[in-house]
Nucleic acid binder design. Structure first.
Length: 814
RNA sequence: GCGCGGAUGGUGGAAUGGUAGACACGAGAGACUUAAAAUCUCUUGGGCGGAUAGCCCGUGCGGGUUCAAGUCCCGCUCUGCGCACCA
């Protein structure tokens, strides 16, 4: 009898799979149904992955493996998110050039992923920093530019002083840089944007129907942040200027007692007079100096100054003061609001502090009379001819009236801003633009792509709002593609997120040098059937959706949404219950565990068994040995089968078949429903069962045990691909278990002739009955009330009711 | 503050409204062994009990619906995550 030696068999089968192209997919083969499984592109930011990452990759591996075994042409590719800030920062940290640092780090990444036995098609590996890849990223930039979705604009932008670059809104988390965690400030700069807001509405509308983890859908909806309201025009008293405000509550218009502008609002300068100008200018200058985060952290104590001017409320002609305050944000709506202190908390706080009038225009419900601010619905008061109308109806009527008077209109606003994509950093795809004195920003013609990133010795950011590329004069100096005039190249590079917004399409045609992909292949393979990750719930997924929608409009992809099922999994915590991180030194290297003799399969089984996918759970160092014990039991069980004599039939084989067929069904359904932990526990249960059953029914090479052993190996295979391949061969098969081998089950085998009926009295368990499946319900009820322990609780009373749930329980109500 | 989750043994967790605690870890006992490791078998929510007879209690707290509630409804507490002066 052979002993289970993971180290030996895992190396052997990994080599076999590679040599035989077991996971190499012919993308042109349409003879089988397709299945496209993917985990988010790994970023090369350090020397490798930890067990938390490993788990993330494994989800798509298992889904894809199961489908491959079930007869699909199943594709699980791998590649590297090589461009961008994280890689460049890593390079600075290790004191090497980005390319060099990246390539060196990649060695360990690959070693880890290969040792973990993922069923990747390594022949189609890609990297976003490969010129043959970023050539097409630049091509996509050109297409966006051509369609007016890439543009340059000067505006205040998030700026990270540490990383010396601007950041997209999605990359600022709680006022801090997503990479270095330091506070960001705003800087007025001319930058490139992608017009993602163009798709805000349709992405929002499509979100509800996505088969995605609910939390991610909610986060995306909140991020898009659609608000339907109105823009209302206020005349400025004594001036021809018009002040437009945005509000979601036009029904409260009669309650507006002042107007507030953001400090950055363009009209501020023209509204001041001799007495107020000094104070207002000081206030504006102060606000500009402070970062947004400082404003936020200052305990939300309202500050502001009066401009000296007044606005006229269009509905009632009231003359109300115009203030400047930093609680109004310049980037949202019109950067100006009408303040209704009676029905908005922030306005109320401001009014209280500066003694501004408060007028109630919505009647508070009886129960809420006490509270100061009421922001709910109710009949209008103090609102002229709209009095008595419920606020929800008044909303529309007031807007209709404004539209008629041409002093306002309905308006939808979004929190989402356009995607800022220029980075003042070296390590990225150069933005393929040439600045011509005559023609302005001119895209580099498609046939001249890629614009290669030049090799430079000093790539580090110098500050001053340009990347290191600005110093490469013979690269910067070029001629205009239109007129040939001396021009300069754009020296900003593309946000790394841009590079990773379309990789799932390139995977389907990675070597195409004529076009980014062949639409015929994409039509067959898209969308991605299963996508998962533990990060990037907003930015990456929104960007990828945006681009896919754009490609859809160009007829380049068959579906506006890139990802079918998107599963957002939780991270595994370190044994101490905190987040695993390099800096804390509490990460666990999968190589270490595998090298200690447990092998990849035990690690893989534990990673799935530890908790459901969406729950954070601390790493238990005793977990892998536990999984190893289970696999060892499988191994020993199969060894008995290998050594058993053939042809003998066990006489009482029914329970073995019940166990086997139930298991096949359960694991199939669990994998389908992403319940990987219970799939494993049911396999453990079945194996425990087989150990008991083999005492009375010794393992033999009969139909019953053959089905039990083979189906066990097949359903275990996506989780533990090496041991199952080895045992599959040992029991006599010559082909790989990983293609087209999945058990069929038969519901007829899933029940025994005897069923257990639970007997309750008033809902409490009092007895159990073992009866023949064919027993009729009346007999079961009779047996139930006659059983001794039930009699004791019924105590001669006549049962009021007897409820029988067929095949399950009897509840006697007394 | 708003939004979305979560709360079950010593631990990770399981449970279409129908036997709460599957499975695993840990712990304890036994078998094998000169011994240890490995392996195999059994026990393991708390309490009463000689009992693997039976009973009582038990899924964060307080109510409710139901023949029956961890599960559904209402009101709380704590906690994780996301967003956060978005008018």
């Amino acid at each position: 009898m052979k002993r289970y030696n993971p180290t030996e068999i895992e190396a052997k089968w990994q080599k076999y799979w590679e040599d035989n192209g077991t996971y190499t997919v012919n993308l042109a083969d349409n003879s089988k149904p397709k299945y496209y499984g993917l985990s988010m592109l790994p970023g090369i930011t350090g020397a490798g992955i930890h067990t938390g990452h490993g788990r993330t990759f494994q989800f798509s591996d298992i889904k894809t493996r199961a489908k491959r075994q079930q007869g699909c042409n199943a594709y699980n590719p791998i590649g590297w998110d090589s461009f961008g800030l994280p890689v460049e920062n890593y390079a600075i940290k290790v004191g090497k050039k980005p390319r060099e640092a990246h390539d060196e780090a990649l060695v360990n990444f690959k070693r880890q992923l290969k040792r973990l036995g993922y069923g990747y098609d390594w022949t189609k590996e890609l990297s976003t920093a490969d010129p043959q890849y970023y050539r097409w990223t630049q091509w996509i930039f050109n297409k966006l530019f051509e369609h007016g979705l890439a543009y340059q604009k000067e505006s205040p932008q998030w700026w990270c002083e540490t990383d010396q670059t601007v950041l997209a809104n999605e990359q600022v988390e709680g006022g801090k840089c997503w990479r270095c965690g330091n506070q960001v400030t705003k800087k007025n700069l001319k930058q490139w944007f992608f017009k993602i807001t163009e798709y805000a509405d349709e992405m929002l509308a499509a979100t509800d129907d996505l088969n995605w983890t609910e939390m991610v859908k909610t986060m995306q909806k909140n991020w898009i942040g659609r608000s339907v309201g109105a823009e209302v025009e206020f005349k400025i008293d004594g001036s021809d200027d018009i002040l437009t405000v945005f509000t979601t509550r036009p029904d409260t218009l009669f309650g507006a007692t002042f107007v507030v502008l953001a400090p950055e609002h363009e009209l501020v300068k023209s509204l001041v007079n001799n007495e107020t100008s000094e104070a207002v200018e000081a206030y504006v200058a102060d606000a500009a100096r402070k970062s947004e985060i400082e404003r936020m952290n200052e305990s939300r104590e309202k500050t502001g100054v009066f401009t000296g001017s007044y606005a006229i409320n269009p509905v009632n002609g009231n003359r109300i003061p115009i203030w400047v305050a930093d609680y109004v944000l310049s980037g949202y709506g019109t950067g100006a609001i009408m303040a209704v202190p009676a029905h908005d908390e922030r306005d109320f706080a401001f009014a209280e502090k500066f003694n501004l009038p408060i007028i109630e225009v919505i009647e508070k419900p009886e129960t809420n009379r006490e509270i100061g601010v009421y922001d709910g619905e109710g009949p209008l008061v103090n609102s002229g001819r709209f009095d008595g109308i419920d606020s929800s109806d008044a909303r529309e009527q007031i807007v209709a009236w404004l539209e008629q008077e041409k002093t306002g209109h309905q308006k939808t606003s979004y929190k989402m801003r356009d995607w800022l994509i220029s980075r003042q950093r070296y390590w990225g795809a150069p933005i393929p633009i040439i600045h011509c004195p005559t023609h302005g920003a001119v895209p580099v013609p498609d046939d001249q792509l890629p614009v290669l990133l030049p090799d430079v010795d000093d790539f580090k950011p110098k500050g001053g709002a340009t990347s290191a590329l600005a110093g490469v004069t013979d690269w910067v100096n070029t001629t205009c593609p239109i007129c040939g005039e001396a021009s300069k190249r754009e020296t900003d590079t593309l946000d790394g997120y841009a590079c990773s917004s379309w990789y799932f399409l390139r995977y389907l045609d990675p070597f195409n040098d004529k076009q980014p992909w062949n639409p015929d292949i994409i039509n067959h393979w898209m969308p991605v059937d299963f996508y998962n990750g533990a990060d990037h719930a907003v930015a990456h997924l929104l960007y990828a959706r945006f681009w896919t929608r754009f490609f859809y409009k160009l007829g380049l992809v068959p579906n506006p949404e890139p990802f079918g099922r998107m599963m957002y999994n939780a991270y595994i915590l370190a044994p101490d219950g905190t987040k695993m991180s390099k800096s804390k030194g509490n990460t666990i290297d999968p190589l270490e565990i595998m090298d200690s003799g447990y092998g990849a399969d035990s690690l893989r089984v534990y990673e799935m068994f530890i908790a459901p996918y969406d729950l954070e759970a601390p790493w238990d160092t005793r977990g892998v040995p536990g999984a190893y014990r289970f696999l060892n039991r499988v191994w020993n069980l199969v060894q008995e089968y290998v050594e058993a004599s053939s042809g003998r039939l066990s006489d009482k084989s029914n329970e073995i078949l019940v166990t086997a067929h139930r298991l096949a069904k359960k694991v199939t359904e669990d994998i389908e429903n992403d319940k990987f932990n219970t799939a494993i526990s049911s396999m453990m249960e079945a194996v425990n069962n087989y150990y008991k059953l083999k005492v009375a029914n010794p393992i033999a090479k009969d139909d019953t045990w053959t089905y039990a052993i083979e189906s066990l190996l097949m359903v275990l295979s996506p989780f533990a691909p090496h041991i199952t391949e080895e045992l599959w061969r040992q029991i006599g098969h010559e082909d790989t278990i990983h293609i087209d081998h999945w058990p069929k089950w038969n519901d007829e085998f899933m029940t025994t002739d005897i069923m257990t009926i639970v007997v309750q009295v008033n809902g409490k368990l009092r007895a159990k009955l073992e009866v023949e499946k064919t027993t009729n319900p009346e007999d079961i009820k009779r047996l139930a009330i006659e059983s001794d322990n039930v009699k004791k609780f019924v105590e001669g009373n006549q049962p009021k009711k007897i409820i029988y749930v067929p095949g399950k329980l009897v509840n006697v109500v007394v």
